[in-house]
Design a protein around this nucleic acid. Structure first.
Lengths: 228, 228
DNA sequence: GAAATAGTGTCTCTTAGACACTATTTC
DNA sequence: GAAATAGTGTCTAAGAGACACTATTTC
């Protein structure tokens, strides 16, 4: 049974909390994360952007504002992933930290602030232990949810070629996909619609541009897959 | 950029936090959740079991101990789902609450404490607003993850019939499954192995008992399904 | 023309679901 | 035997992957 502490007494037991954001963008065949320098006395250590949580705050608001401030522009997606309340060290000394995922397309990823820089997620400087765990957790949840949720589209501009889209999926899944099969599945899911624009990248046949335009789902019936 | 507050100052900004658990068990064709009565002055209102978080605590430990205390036995799974830090009302007056899922098989679900009772998840008494949202969130995440994670097995005793297992999946997914197809998929996933016991439920042919015994995964290759 | 990239048609193999069947128990 | 439940064999349709092809651009 939970302790029968009254709300007033419970409110006097307070913990230091932080909101931490993992801001991701694609660049070429790599996924980049935005890190900021710690305060001067922590000697140039890189950290995930974080902000302390205060009693009147809403975690989603704090995360959205933090991401926007560091990035210099509004990310296309900000979403909570998980809470971390182990005893690992956090730069804010927080007892409890909530990890958020933020996604930006690469065009908008240029204007990050002076104290921040992009790092490939597979080649990172040392991070505070809890933030390291938060980053791993966010990346794992990204891979797990990629085919249930339109995550990939948040990493692309509003119009894009199907090759670009496939490259994002390959980046997030960490493996190559079959071109014809990818396009058939995409068509069957009614997730994109063609525009009447075409983009020529210099060499080769120009590609048609598409936009994300999900149509209503067809029943959603499917068997149990048991993780396969 | 995050504010450059020093760890010492940040730690002085504290919020009231709680750990809340959604404890679930199957009964017949329904899923039940364990609720406890609020403190006397809150007039018999039902609540999710919760416990305040203190600075030295680990959220997983608090959740595990809380679930065990209310349930009278150790749940077979305790897992974090999400943090809730909106301004909705919480019985502890918490600014930030972390929702946990706990699962028990029905045999062990009997010994819950005197101030608690089981309610069908589709027929609940009024709950504090944040706890209502937490319960919805936990149930949604359960349905989303059921085929990626061996959740169903935590709602069954260590040996079970395949009909029992299928009924758990049908309960969680909210729809009927095809018997032969369900068994073929299960066999292909190498998740269960037969025991040499059989159980007769009175009428009809006795069913063979199986146990959860996952074998190593076959590659895990599959195409992108785009949520279909 | 060659090289490069975009996009498609067809075949095969796997598998989900339907259907119908067999098997084993209680009454 | 009838009723009830467990468990399986076969067909079909959908879809993923392989392969090979066509289409359109730059050089």
């Amino acid at each position: 049974m939970p302790s029968r502490t009254s709300p007033a007494r419970a409110a006097s037991r307070r913990v230091a909390s932080s909101i931490d954001v993992v801001i991701l963008t694609p660049r070429g065949r790599r996924l980049l994360v935005l890190l900021t320098r710690g305060p001067a006395r922590s000697r140039e250590r890189w950290q995930l952007p974080w902000h302390p949580l205060r009693p009147a705050d809403t975690i989603d608001d704090v995360a959205a504002q933090l991401a926007r401030r560091v990035l210099g522009t509004r990310p296309s997606l900000v979403e909570q992933v998980a809470a971390y309340g182990d005893r690992r060290r956090h730069p804010a000394g927080a007892d409890l930290s909530v990890a958020f995922l933020a996604l930006v397309e690469s065009e908008s990823a240029a204007g990050a602030d002076k104290n921040s820089a992009w790092f490939p997620v597979d080649d990172l400087p040392p991070l505070p232990p809890r933030q390291r765990a938060m980053l791993e957790g966010v990346l794992t949840s990204l891979r797990v949810r990629i085919d249930q949720s339109p995550i990939a589209f948040h990493l692309l501009p509003s119009t894009f070629t199907l090759t670009q889209l496939q490259e994002i999926y390959e980046l997030l899944l960490g493996r190559r996909l079959h071109k014809a099969s990818f396009r058939r599945s995409l068509h069957a899911a009614w997730l994109v619609e063609p525009t009447d624009e075409w983009r020529s990248e210099g060499r080769g046949r120009p590609a048609q541009l598409f936009r994300y335009a999900p149509r209503k789902r067809r029943g959603g019936r499917r068997g149990v897959r048991f993780g396969i």
